[in-house]
Design a protein around this nucleic acid. Sequence first.
DNA 1: CCAGACGTTGTT
DNA 2: GTCTGG
DNA 3: CCAGACGTTGTT
DNA 4: GTCTGG
Length: 229
Amino acid sequence: MCTRYLTPDQRAYEQAISHIPPFWKDFESHFDVRITNHVPVIRPAPDGGYIGEAMYWTLLPPRYDSKKAWRLPTFNLRAERLDESRMYATPFRLRRCLLPAAGFYEWPEIDGRKTRHCIRPAEAGLFFFAGLWNPYQSRDGSEADHSCGLITCDANPFMRPLHNTGGNKHRMPVILDWARGNRWLFGDTDEARELLAPCPDNWLMAYPVTRNAGDVPAQTEPAGEPVYG
DNA sequence: CCAGACGTTGTT
DNA sequence: GTCTGG
DNA sequence: CCAGACGTTGTT
DNA sequence: GTCTGG
């Protein structure tokens, strides 16, 4: 499902978040990020504020041979396994984060044809994927980084027809607004767990996009009528 | 006790 | 980092 | 013995 | 169709 998405532009950050970490200004707006790229992430600072920084998108164990050697697809993290998985349990308790996004893609099959759609916030300029992060160091010490993944849950009614293919259809990212995002970051584990649900349909809109690969503006440009949740 | 694992999605 | 299996 | 899986990529 | 795990 979610293997690439759009990061918000500066204006979307400014409208959604009153105090913007200086970091945002260094991050290219509306960049089409993919798994194994570095993506913008918000996490709590020790003083109670926020840290914004780039993290490697694919959650890694804190120690592993190398990033390249890690083959498991831990860029998406199933919400149902957060407590039970030995890889997720500790980050879920201690290292929750937010991945700001302006949209993501699905390739629904409509009338027998796969048509790429861009899914975006219906009203706000951005939303936040609920995520987990880990510190990371390669075994030989040559790589040091933070890694992260975003959490997935069952699709809401709006997303179901938009993610209707593959062995893992009918899933979607856990999408939060800024208020819920703060509870995700700063609440206790029980409060955080309650947020792991499909977002309301009316938070989302979608439209078909052209398949002009490599051309980011064209990919985000509507090529058909929008649909609102 | 040490060694090895640690997991999800879908492509134009 | 932490858990599991041997 | 039956039920379920059967697999790989990640830079367009 | 064949293998694996339970």
